[in-house]
Structure formats: structure tokens, C-alpha cells
Nucleic acid binder design. Structure first.
Lengths: 230, 230
DNA sequence: ACCTGAACACCGTTCAAGT
DNA sequence: ACCTGAACACCGTTCAAGT
């Protein structure tokens, strides 16, 4: 089928940062961080190095722009849930899923925090907490804890996913291995180990992530109840 | 003082993985991730490339070993607090401080999770939760949430610290900038913004980290209380 | 067994030259 | 203004040769 098309043909339409970023995202999603190379990008876009550098300052800039693109799309989906607690859970899951689909975003966020897109996330969380009745003076710390948890766990999960990308067998083998180690601990001194080992083999990362969100929400509410009582 | 000592002299004592890892840690701490180069490492250790590769499989392996070294030292410090809640807070703070002192550890953990050293952290957290009276079936999710929070936030914080490494002025300027943005939001629709903007400028990352730990602990206890009641 | 360092493959970035 | 691609500096890794 179709001979290799030379690949030497010049592109007809103009380049744009948008176009470059989208191409970079595709490469990152397919081959991971190591696959994103200016040489690959150049070939994919049928252009030269200089053309890319005309729209992008350097590789850092490109990665940052790609990350912004992904996060912005998540936050742009307006929260439709009327119940603030559900809204928060939905936002958390959206971010989790986005980082799961684009694992390199997790690593990038640890490298360049405080991107504008993240401020929107922060804002969104703050609004939901306010709707939940959290007093203004408690919102700062609560929103911080939630956001850090969401990004932190999503990042960890993405890292896991990347390491165990090959197939389910790998994941199962590794978890079984860890579980076996724990199952060997003295059940008298470590009664938690048996249950944890069992759960480890069966657990669903996405569900466990949500349990954590709920734990933090429960904590926020518990602390506020105490504050009201006193 | 002391002329440059040629640097060409061969080392007298034998090399070892331990020695290489320690040298790598020093380079990483001083100059950040970008500074760790086999060429720099070779010069620092007065040796050749092959000698290093004799003890270390590749750069990934070296980074992993360096991370293990840091984390292991933290977990090795036995928890002396008799009160489990204080023990957890102490462990959390130790990890936070360690990652703050070695910011590259944060990025590394997102790259290679499930290292043996982290399993020890998990184990330690589980034990403290058990001592706190958390039922065995709730320990898995609770420990997971706590550990993810600790590593996630510590990593984020390290990233912040790295970006704003230069001096306090930079940090203050950036935070003031963000605060100003939020202060402009309509105070009727966003009553939380004013307080958050103020807190943002003044907050202490370490203290806020601990507030988050306490929130999760409060959530764990609240959920368990409900379970008991029903 | 342990070490040396030239050599190789690869990658980010620049820049003089083109349209 | 926008694009091309040879060239440069740098870095991880290998390997034949040394002790």
C-alpha cells in the first residue's frame, strides 16, 4: 500500500503553536516522555527545527504548553453537579482520568507547579467548598489539601500506570509479590497486614483515589462541626 | 591556596556503589537534577566512566538508588512518639523535610514509585493507624490516602521550592501576583477570595502540609465513628 | 576484578541562508 | 515573517585495552 510518500514535501498550511502542541501531545501519549524529540516532531510536522522554535521557546516551554492544554480542557468542562460535594468528586475524577490518560502530565506538574491552569483548579475547588458551607477562613487550607491530594495521587497513579504499562500480568505479578511479602509478617504483631495484602491485590486505584477524596471531605466537615460547637 | 592538584591522580581507595550514590546525592543537592552528569561524577570521583558503570546499571538506577538512600534514612529513624497520632505527624514531617532538603527526590518518586523504601513507609503508617484504633478493613484505604497525600504534597512543595529557589523575593513576588489576581475577583460572588489571597501571601507551606495531614486523620476518625454508630 | 578514556549514537538548540 | 537543515555542544553508554 501507499509508497512512503517521500516525506520531503513541504507543508502547505501555516504552522501554529496550537498545531505544534497538539502534535506533541499525541507523541507524548503514544510513546511517553522519551519519545518527544524535536527530530520526531519535525518529521511529524513536515518542517524544520527553526520553524518549531519560532513558536516555542524550548522543550520546557513545549511541555508546559502541552500540560496547560490538557488541564485547561478538564477545567473548562463546567461543573454541572448541583450538589457541591458531587461537584468536587466529579472535578477530582476528571483530573484523575485526564492524568491517567496523559501520564506525562503528572511528572510535568511536579516539575513546573503554579501554572495558570492550576490556579483555575484551585479557584474551582474553593467555590465548591464555599457552596458546601465551609467558612471563609478554613477554605484556604482545605482547598490546598484537596488540590495537593488530587494532583499528588493522580501523579503517583500515572507513574504506576506507566511503569506497569505493558499489561495486566505485570501489575498483578508486582502486587502479588508485595502482598506475599506482607502476608508473611507476623499476624499477631501486624494484624493489618493480611487484610491489606488481600486488598492490595484486588483494589481499584480509581476507587481508592475517590475514597481518599471522601476522607478529606469528611475531615473538613468534622473540623468545621467542632468549630461550630465551640 | 593549594594549587589545583592536577585532578589526574588515580584514586587510591576502591570505589563502591555506596560511595557513588553519596557523591551523586551531593551533586543533586547542590546543583539539581540537571547537574548530575556522568562526566561531573567521573571527575568528582577521580575515575572513569566504566568504573561507575561497574557498580551502577545506568543513570535511572543511580537516581533510584539515591532516592532509596534518602527515604531509607528517614524511615530508619524509629518512631519514638508513644501517641500514634503524633507518630504519624512526625513521620509525615520527616518525609516532608527530607524531600524539602532533597527536592529531586520528589520528581524521582513520580517517576519510579513502588520502591522498597516506600513499602516501609506504608508499613509504618499502617502500624500507627492500627495503634490509633482504625479497624483492619479500613487501614488499607486510610494508609493509602495518607501516604499519597504525604508524597504528593511533599513533591509539589519541593517543586515549588526548586522553582522559587533563587530567593525570598521571587516567592513573595509570585505569590503577591497570584494574590492580587484573586483579590480582584468580585467579593460578592467569591467571598473566599479575599481571605485566601491574604493567607496565600503569609502562609507557611510546612504548616499547611500538617493541616492537611490532620484533616485526613480527622476524616479517618469521623468515618470510623460513623461505622461504629451504625 | 576493577579501572581508563576514546569513541558512538543521540538530542536540544543555534544560525546563516533561503522564500 | 516564516521556514530549512547543516552544524555545534553536550550527554548517556559502550568497549577495547590496560592493571
Amino acid at each position: 500500500m501507499a509508497t512512503k510518500e517521500s516525506g520531503r514535501q513541504r507543508r502547505t498550511d501555516a504552522l501554529s503553536k496550537q498545531l505544534i502542541v497538539r502534535a506533541a501531545i499525541e507523541i507524548l501519549d503514544t510513546g511517553g516522555e522519551a519519545a518527544l524529540t524535536f527530530s520526531v516532531l519535525t518529521r511529524r510536522l513536515n518542517t524544520g527545527y527553526g520553524a518549531i522554535y519560532h513558536y516555542v521557546a524550548n522543550k520546557s516551554d513545549l511541555l508546559a504548553a502541552a500540560t496547560d492544554d490538557v488541564i485547561t480542557r478538564v477545567v473548562a468542562g463546567p461543573i454541572t453537579e448541583p450538589e457541591p460535594r458531587e461537584g468536587l468528586r466529579a472535578l477530582a475524577l476528571s483530573l484523575f482520568d485526564a492524568i491517567d490518560a496523559h501520564p506525562w502530565v503528572g511528572a510535568q506538574l511536579t516539575r513546573e507547579p503554579w501554572r495558570p491552569a492550576l490556579l483555575d483548579v484551585y479557584k474551582c475547588i474553593s467555590e465548591q467548598l464555599q457552596a458546601l458551607g465551609v467558612p471563609a477562613e478554613a477554605i484556604f487550607d482545605s482547598a490546598g489539601a484537596l488540590m495537593n491530594y488530587i494532583l499528588g495521587v493522580a501523579g503517583q497513579n500515572a507513574a504506576n500506570a506507566r511503569v506497569l504499562a505493558s499489561n495486566r500480568t505485570d501489575r498483578d505479578a508486582l502486587l502479588a509479590d508485595i502482598a506475599a511479602q506482607w502476608a508473611q509478617l507476623d499476624p499477631i504483631r501486624h494484624p493489618w497486614a493480611a487484610g491489606t495484602a488481600k486488598r492490595l491485590r484486588e483494589h481499584d486505584d480509581r476507587a481508592q483515589f475517590l475514597v481518599g477524596v471522601d476522607l478529606i471531605l469528611a475531615g473538613i466537615e468534622a473540623v468545621n462541626r467542632e468549630r461550630e460547637d465551640s
